[in-house]
Design a protein around this nucleic acid. Structure first.
Length: 732
DNA sequence: TACAAGCGCCTTTTT
DNA sequence: GGCGCTTGTA
């Protein structure tokens, strides 16, 4: 099936013992795993439930499962253990919850839950949050956990560390009383069990899987690797596939040394290198190699392609981010007009903050698009609140959820009362729900507070009985009514409340969709299963297969491919990105990671790659003047075409200096027509009487034009009336 | 206690 | 530029 030469295919299909596949970009990495699993099932009669295949995203797992279904049939593939580390561990943890002191209904705290918890603890412990801000504290906690270091293992190195260690210990304790885990815990709990020679669960897990496969192995972290090694046990039937050049999650604890040092850990490992790229034109492959060749540390390998050279890689200089957006959108419009499918096109950027300007231009041009990541649907306050109700009913011990909704919609339980509850819970080391129950029984509460708290207590208790007899969807719908959530929003009747109601409706829709999907797969639908899935969705997982231009960070682009790629913001400081902690001591490692990130970006393109860089950029409310990225200079001149002008001209441009750029040097303003010479000629501004097109209002007749730095057009739209809209949001 | 306004804060990448 | 938090007021 995949493009393997005969000895490689032989090894992938039949190898026993450790197998390491270095799979270069576009060489069919994921297919190697699929091929091996298919062979284990068909040729070696391995029972599907004895195979564990770990992917990087849920989306990848879904695609692999679909492909295997075609090869082996759904009744076989449904028994496979196939998913991300987190999803697989979450499932195992449901099974072995007892041994780690969780209930079967434990909840998974997301980032904001975790951060809220840490903030609360910092306040309670009287720690100075200037010296140890919640963000930093949390990231240090995660770091410790990824190294499997518990609070007791953490020795304070300097005075401040003492409060950190104390905080870390309290954090762990709070998770336990809340019947909750964070993302690291999912892996860590299971890893500890799997390594424990005395644990029955560990013994069970170690003998459970006869074959373990890991995709995107370069991005596993220390505890994930330890877990894999424990699970593989004595069989050593471990197959890992990855590409050290595409390791881009170091900041999340991923350790490239796992793949680079694999042969030290498994001296008998068979090693295969897949070096032929089947995805991109040779110009694109050469461009990518130009970038990665300068990495300081990498496994030697020779990526090559037999595809034709294709178009040159275009490198476009523009003045600022608005011009960049204008250029990208015009170019995309041009492509679509010539028959390109929008979903074959992607726009990449280094940080989410770059997406807004691009988004506005796309919307203005009426080009369908989807943004992967960014402000996530599940991050909306109202969505979180509804889910918090569901989680709280499922697990009343979950403090984060209780505190989120105790006064949503407002029911007269203010900060003072809440603080009373939290203190009572902390004093007795119990969860807030139990503290609430206790205080109501004790009868020591002020009457007003008592009445309101009692009503809340009854509300949740009632919801619990409803949950038992309803599907997740019906239960969610019931919550909206019973809590008065819907009514409150309807009464508010503002643009925001309408949007909230819409989001809630969308959430209900997605729950219904989920139920349908499960039923079709022949599985029963439970509240826990739904909540678990919601906790583990990644951004890419939500990407639709719709005819829309995709916009995403380069990180989110990993594992994807597009016919045309626009790589924007290729400037020093933006890419390689220089954040606040640029003084860190492993700056070289970080630069290498940026380089690999650029390599990943470039290798996503199949046929067309356009790279843009701006002379100045306003981001986070500050305008910066930027130089072209060093990665652009690493592109082989033979495969690139430099276009446009900016403050920073390339050698190429300097030798082709024109009168126009000389004029700009002297500070004269002009319109650089040459910069858009391959685009449809820019048209003059519309005049009164002309018609313009708006994505929402449709066609309108121009009444007045307001010129300026950002021209606006006043026009009458049938059915909408007279509207003033910035010209860049209109087509004409 | 509710709510609005305003302030200061930060600002990478994510399971 | 936006968010969360605090503050001030009804």
């Amino acid at each position: 099936m995949p493009e393997l030469n005969p000895p490689q295919a032989q090894a992938v299909a039949h190898n026993q013992g450790p197998l390491l596949v270095f799979a270069g970009a576009g060489s069919g990495k994921t297919r190697v795993i699929t091929y091996r699993v298919a062979n284990l099932l068909a040729e070696h009669s391995v029972a599907p439930y004895r195979i564990l295949a770990v992917t990087f995203t849920n989306k990848a797992a879904g695609e692999m499962r679909a492909r295997l279904e075609q090869l082996a049939g759904p009744e076989i593939t449904s028994d496979l253990w196939l998913g991300t580390f987190h999803a697989v561990c979450a499932r195992l943890l449901r099974r072995y919850h007892d041994e780690v002191g969780l209930s079967r209904r434990y909840v998974i705290y997301d980032d904001s839950d975790q951060k809220a918890l840490v903030s609360r603890l910092i306040k309670r412990l009287g720690i100075n949050d200037k010296e140890l801000p919640p963000r930093l504290a949390l990231s240090r906690i995660h770091k410790q956990k990824r190294l499997a270091l518990s609070p007791e293992d953490t020795t304070p190195e300097w005075p401040l560390d003492e409060s950190f260690v104390e905080l870390y210990a309290k954090y762990e304790q709070s998770l336990r009383t809340a019947d909750a885990v964070d993302f690291e815990d999912l892996i860590l709990h299971i890893m500890r069990l799997a390594e424990d020679p005395l644990s029955p669960a560990g013994r069970d897990m170690r003998s459970r899987f006869s074959h373990v496969l890991v995709d995107e192995f370069q991005d596993t972290n220390a505890i994930q690797y330890r877990l894999v090694r424990a699970l593989v046990g004595e069989t050593k039937n471990l197959c890992v596939v990855g590409d050290d050049d595409q390791s881009i999650y170091r900041w999340r604890g991923a350790d490239v040394r796992n793949i680079r040092g694999f042969r030290d850990d498994f001296p008998t490992a068979t090693i295969i290198k897949l070096e032929q790229n089947y995805r991109s034109t040779s110009n694109i492959v050469k461009a990518a190699l130009g970038i990665i060749a300068k990495a300081m540390w990498r496994e030697p390998k020779q990526l090559f392609t037999e595809e034709g050279s294709g178009e040159p890689v275009r490198v476009r200089a523009v003045g600022d981010e608005r011009q960049e957006a204008f250029f990208v959108v015009e170019s995309i419009r041009h492509q679509i007009a010539n028959g390109a499918d929008p979903d074959d096109i992607a726009i990449f950027y280094r940080v989410h903050a770059q997406s807004r300007v691009l988004e506005e231009s796309l919307r203005g041009a009426g080009i369908p698009y989807q943004i992967v990541g960014g402000m996530k649907f599940f991050d909306r306050a109202e969505v979180k609140s509804l889910l918090a109700y569901m989680r709280l009913v499922n697990t009343t011990r979950s403090d984060a959820d209780l505190l989120r909704i105790i006064n949503v919609p407002t029911r007269g339980i203010g900060n003072k009362t809440v603080q009373l509850l939290v203190d009572a819970a902390a004093k007795r080391e119990i969860c807030v729900w139990d503290a609430l129950t206790l205080l109501l029984d004790a009868g020591t509460l002020p009457t007003a507070a008592r009445r309101k708290l009692k009503a809340f207590h009854e509300l949740i208790t009632d919801l619990r009985t409803v949950a038992e007899s309803h599907s997740p969807h019906d239960f969610a719908a019931h919550i909206l009514e019973a809590t008065g959530f819907r009514q409150t929003l309807e009464k508010e009747d503002s643009v925001e409340s309408d949007a909230r109601l819409e989001n809630l409706a969308e959430l209900l829709g997605s729950i219904a969709e989920y139920e349908l999907e499960r039923e079709e797969a022949g599985e029963n639908v439970t509240l826990e299963a739904y909540l678990e899935r919601v906790s583990l969705v990644a951004d890419v997982d939500t990407m639709e297969d719709a005819p829309k231009v995709a916009m995403m960070t380069v990180h989110a682009a990993k594992g994807l491919e597009f016919v045309s790629v626009y790589l924007t913001g290729m400037e020093e400081e933006m890419f390689p990105y220089r954040g606040m902690n640029s003084e860190s001591d492993d700056a070289l490692e970080e630069l290498d990671e940026e380089r690999r990130l650029a390599y990943v970006a470039v290798t996503r393109a199949k046929q067309r790659l356009v790279i843009t860089h701006a002379g100045s950029r306003t981001i986070f409310g500050r305008t910066k003047f930027l130089n072209r990225s060093r990665f652009i200079d690493d592109l082989p001149p033979a495969v690139t075409r430099l276009e446009g002008t900016s403050q920073q001209r390339t050698q190429y441009q300097r030798t082709h200096e024109t009168g126009v750029s000389a004029a700009r040097e002297r500070g004269e303003s002009y319109v650089d027509r040459n910069a858009f010479d391959d685009l449809p000629e820019e048209e003059a501004a519309p005049r009164p009487g002309d018609t313009v097109q708006h994505s929402k209002f449709g066609e309108g007749v121009v009444e007045r034009v307001e010129l300026g730095t950002d021209p606006a057009i006043v026009a009458r739209y049938p059915g909408w009336g007279v509207k003033k809209v910035l010209a860049r949001f209109l087509s004409y």
